[in-house]
Design a protein around this nucleic acid. Structure first.
Lengths: 232, 232
DNA sequence: CCCTGTCTTTGCGCTAGCGCAAACAAGAAC
DNA sequence: GTTCTTGTTTGCGCTAGCGCAAAGACAGGG
């Protein structure tokens, strides 16, 4: 695989980077390709690289001491991950990155990254802006988890996912998501049983259609109503 | 109140700033003093200033559409807050900052902040490092809320608070915290009733002593055990 | 000293959501 | 096709935690 500076322009943090900077980045990084269910890195590994997903799909997750895990984010092409570890010297990744399908990612060496952040303030600034948005998202999800009930959290999660990754299947104007019940459970802090029951209920109401590892949103508006706790 | 560059050195993000930079910061900022229970800013306000708490104590909280709120952080002198809003141009604060006692803070104008971040890459870098630590803390708390049960979350919260703000009351080696049951509930996503019951139970076991808006940790080790879910 | 407002405790009943178990469904592999 | 694996559904019983209500317990103001 060969990437051009133009490709890198699709990365949010590199939008304002110069042609020269992008070339330099490409020169100082490698491509790592891994298969479905393999890992880019594990929580606790020392952080050598900052990654940018090029093809495929992956997820970022975190697990506690007794192995239960939560999904932090789903990764799509041209999104950055592993930044938390790579930005600080000598630190380790706070999460695990696993490929959901065969995937490849650009791996930027963390030492080089540091140098670049020093010499290119606008990149540092854009990266900081990206981080503020992560903080906000996590704060919002934290608040959701603390104050809302399962129904609302799940509806919210579906809406969020639809916005991030949804593919509009042309005919039906239905947005299709590829997640198992287990995945959704780990995003919303509940169990696959509860998710299954909820989705079945919503399917009965015609809000969504479900399949094996598939959720198709038919009436987004209905989900929004639930998310806001308006129903009942 | 008059601050010197030396004072500002206590701010994590300014540790590596030069004398000149610190002077410039002081020149471009003002002191705001407010009374107990007043607000530095509200969630949704357009972000004009980045704040640094100088004296007193405050809390950062976020509320959802129907008014329920969660505590994001407790602020102590020389800690920065309002950064999420102030870093990006034209944005608004994602949280509310309320004083827990009479407090004063240094308010740095956001326009000036932008200029400074461009010209002083090391400050930008340190700020970014600080942000990574916020993201990590939020991710950890999110995971806690999603996977652990109330008992463990509350124990964890007390431990965290002890680390951040605890004053060792000399004699008893007990760490004293000043929070109401309601406060703790909002930090851990539960209710003041449940907190009250838990604290009573722990007091019976001799792990803590409680009072009106006071929690004194007697046996930190016992709390750690509970936090890890080892008991029962 | 009493009064008032705020915080805390506790009894009580209730239900949302958990989690086992067992059956079922849909692919994948052969 | 048959067999295996992996995901999904659903019945069922249970309990952790919620939240009302009512009764203390402090602390400050006058």
């Amino acid at each position: 695989m060969n990437l051009s500076p133009k490709d890198l322009k699709q990365v949010v943090v590199f939008q304002n980077a110069t042609e020269d900077e992008l070339k330099l980045i490409l020169k100082n990084s490698i491509i790592r390709s891994i298969e479905e269910n393999e890992f880019f890195f594990f929580q606790g590994d020392t952080a050598q690289y900052l990654y940018i997903l090029v093809t495929g799909q992956a997820k970022l997750m975190q697990s506690n001491t007794n192995g239960q895990q939560v999904n932090l984010r789903t990764l799509h092409p041209w999104q950055m991950f592993g930044a938390l570890g790579a930005v600080r010297a000598e630190s380790s990744y706070p999460a695990t990155a696993q490929a959901l399908e065969d995937s490849s990612a650009l791996a930027i060496e963390s030492g080089f990254l540091h140098k670049m952040l020093e010499t290119s303030p606008h990149i540092a600034f854009d990266l900081m802006t990206l981080m503020t948005s992560y903080i906000q998202e996590m704060q919002a999800r934290f608040r959701e988890l603390a104050t809302e009930k399962v129904e609302q959290r799940v509806a919210n999660a579906l809406i969020r996912l639809a916005g991030q990754s949804g593919v509009k299947s042309n005919k039906e104007a239905g947005i299709e998501l590829s997640f198992s019940r287990q995945d959704v459970a780990e995003m919303t802090g509940t169990t696959l049983y509860t998710i299954s029951r909820l989705l079945s209920e919503w399917e009965r109401q015609g809000l969504i259609k479900t399949g094996r590892e598939k959720i198709q949103i038919i009436k987004p508006h209905g989900l929004v109503r639930i998310a806001e706790g308006l129903d009942k």
